[in-house]
Design a protein around this nucleic acid. Structure first.
Length: 271
DNA sequence: AACAATTACAACCGCCACCAG
DNA sequence: GCTGGTGGCGGTTGTAATTGT
């Protein structure tokens, strides 16, 4: 039997980096199975993707983590657990691998992190807490009348769009979301719910989505998230409120108000 | 200077979700 | 509904660089 051709492994050379960079410049990201052929590299698709994502991609920030970054990592880890890609998505220029290595080295290892010049930090004690683990999910259509199944679909939809959008973020937007003017609660409408949203709005919504999640951990108790849903018949936006509570209770749905316990959220987001 | 121990992080592996056929 | 291909993720390992003795 003929032996399958071995692909190269181990550290990348400058020449390989150049070939990969040229290939991505020419054909763009994606279609990773074609990249080794296009680039003329004797590497597997995964290796090419990893090299690009963790090292060659433009705007990757290297070097020490700042105090703000460390603080954000700690907060997000408390909230999300080891969801490195999500955490990295909120740290412009940082990769999931960077964040993961940083965490394993300094935080888990109980060592003092290296900081950018002029920065100082006192690493907080990480206390064990319930972790919200949003996960992009597929949801079936059927945004109809208020029922439990419907609620789940909506929540999945919010979760998915919020996370997927957040992964595309490269920085914080500067302008205000016109829909986010509610002082006591925050507005959040998903891309799926409003196809006509501008990209700026989507970015703002996503930032707001993250802020809300962080508020959950900051406040300890539940928070309220005001978001928009789309009427399946008229395709018009409908205001709704999602209340996240710490207590255990049954789904309480009335007049578009969903009251969910933290356990419910775990179940909804597919843990 | 030589060697050992430790650190930092790049790279690999295996698994899972998604999607098209 | 099933299956294979693909992209993506988190956990782990490998190793070059650095530090200590």
């Amino acid at each position: 039997m003929e032996k399958k051709a071995e692909v190269k492994r181990g550290a990348w050379t400058k020449e390989e980096d150049t070939l990969l960079r040229i290939c991505i410049d020419k054909f763009g990201e994606g279609k990773w199975h074609k990249v080794p052929i296009r680039a003329g590299l004797n590497r597997c698709r995964k290796s090419c993707r990893l090299r690009w994502m963790n090292y060659l991609r433009p705007n990757i920030k290297r070097g020490y983590f700042t105090k703000d970054e460390v603080d954000l990592i700690q907060r997000l880890h408390k909230l999300l657990g080891n969801r490195w890609s999500l955490i990295a998505g909120r740290l412009p220029g940082r990769t999931a691998n960077d964040v993961k290595n940083f965490w394993n080295t300094y935080i888990n290892g109980k060592k003092m992190p290296q900081l950018a010049a002029g920065e100082s930090i006192k690493v907080k004690t990480i206390t064990k807490s319930k972790v919200v683990r949003p996960r992009p999910r597929t949801f079936s259509e059927g945004l109809g009348s208020s029922n439990v199944h419907n609620t789940r679909s909506k929540f999945s939809q919010i979760t998915r769009s919020g996370l997927n959008e957040s992964l595309k973020l490269s920085g914080n937007p500067s302008d205000e979301n016109p829909k986010s003017n509610n002082a006591s609660s925050s507005a959040l409408s998903s891309e799926n719910m409003n196809q006509s949203s501008s990209s700026d709005e989507k970015v703002n919504e996503c930032v707001q989505w993250w802020s809300n999640l962080l508020d959950i951990t900051e406040n300890g108790q539940g928070t309220s998230i005001l978001f928009s849903d789309q009427d399946p018949m008229t395709m018009e936006l409908m205001p709704m409120t999602l209340e996240i509570e710490d207590s255990t209770s049954d789904d309480a749905i009335e007049d578009g108000m969903f009251s969910l316990s933290s356990d419910d959220i775990w179940e909804l987001i597919g843990q």
